[in-house]
Design a protein around this nucleic acid. Structure first.
Lengths: 226, 226
DNA sequence: GCATGTGAATAGATTCACAGCG
DNA sequence: CGCTGTGAATCTATTCACATGC
């Protein structure tokens, strides 16, 4: 019913999935993994909403952007839906990622089993501090930052994780971009400047706490939020 | 001390600040800290937008919800604006937080200097595994989960951080809520069920990567996003 | 003159509500 | 019947553009 790409001259409307929906797809994907593990064959939008932490209307609307994968009166086939979402997210093979900055946080990320389990492979660990080189973290050695370009090239790394202090972050981002990385997950509190075409997501741990602080502080003004 | 809801005719609006704005306040706050450190006295919406990673119109609109703290033709006073935002966020004194689950991630969070620097104090580290009890992480000992209620009570802990595996997360959340904690930052991939009035924010590391994976995978369909 | 503050306009996301189909 | 799929309605957020006041 929906064409992927118009074949003509005009690369007109490529059925754009809303950003808000994309941000939720991973949660559906994870919920479906759990359902599959529990040998559940089908799931309704209501149940899926519960498992993923949203509401049924949102689930149906979100899934409708991917295509028509449900069966009226029945629900969605767990395996098929998971496969479709995984394909949309590009999880059909595991992306190699590098982690730059092997401090406490970098070490934790390096050994986080959730990455491997959900479509990602740690290709290398890098740190600018030469005294860390060779040190083992999990099953990987720490390598000097100067190896970055080589590693990205040979391992076809597409995603870089920055776990350095804020002051080093822009520098690392520049190096990643120069090496060809076009997706960056930034755990430093710094705001990164990157050229057009490079995607950046930031997770600032203190920001999350400060937002909670706001709701805690204003608790009585109005109800809490999720 | 504070009224719950006005019962009379005039349930006049308590000037609600939009959620989207609240989520950005911490970034302004941090940018202003940097400006203050650099001895900058005033800042325009344009400059602040640059530093925080947004645009000028958004900055002005956001700040207008807090009050009228700028001077036309000049800009915002850095110190005053920082103080106002800090007050709105409830950062006037440092909130005590507990971290539950002292694995690799919990350890990294426990030693993350950004928390202390931005308004939070780690009151205690807790882990269900009794063999970890007494172990020192940074300057704090790991304590058994059974101490949770006592600690929350005596230290007036308002915010709990969950850094356990997914399977344990709901359990820990229940304990935190029972102990009186009403704000939770959840680093596990689990979806938490909490009673009305408890605020939860979740950071799922794999979700962030999967969202990047989507944009990486669809790079050619359309430009990247921030 | 210059940058804020803000209504009005636009864009985006969520929710409603029900037709459509197994 | 039950549950999906989806237009229409609503709500929320962003951006525009300019009057306002230092």
């Amino acid at each position: 019913m929906h064409k992927r790409f118009s074949v003509g001259f005009v690369s007109k409307d490529v059925r754009r999935i809303p950003d808000a929906t994309i941000a939720r797809l991973p949660r559906y994907h994870r919920a479906l993994l759990e359902l599959a593990a529990a040998k559940t064959a089908t799931v309704s939008s209501d149940e899926l909403a519960d498992l993923a932490g949203f509401n049924a209307a949102k689930v149906r609307k979100d899934l409708s952007y991917l295509g028509t994968y449900g069966t009226r009166g029945v629900g969605y086939d767990v395996d098929n839906l998971r496969r479709q979402i995984g394909r949309e997210l590009g999880l059909t093979e595991s992306w190699p990622v590098v982690i730059v900055g092997i401090g406490n946080l970098g070490r934790a990320l390096a050994t986080y089993s959730g990455f491997a389990m959900r479509g990602f492979r740690i290709a290398a660990l890098l740190d600018a501090d030469p005294t860390k080189s060779g040190q083992m973290v999990g099953s990987l050695p720490v390598r000097p930052s100067s190896d970055l370009a080589t590693i990205v090239g040979t391992e076809h790394v597409a995603i870089g994780i920055i776990a350095t202090p804020g002051v080093a972050a822009q520098d690392v981002a520049d190096q990643l971009v120069a090496a060809g990385v076009r997706s960056i997950l930034n755990f430093s509190p710094a705001v990164l400047n990157v050229p057009e075409g490079v995607a950046v997501r930031g997770v600032d741990l203190a920001v999350e706490l400060q937002v909670l602080s706001y709701y805690q502080h204003h608790r009585d003004d109005l109800g809490a939020s999720a």
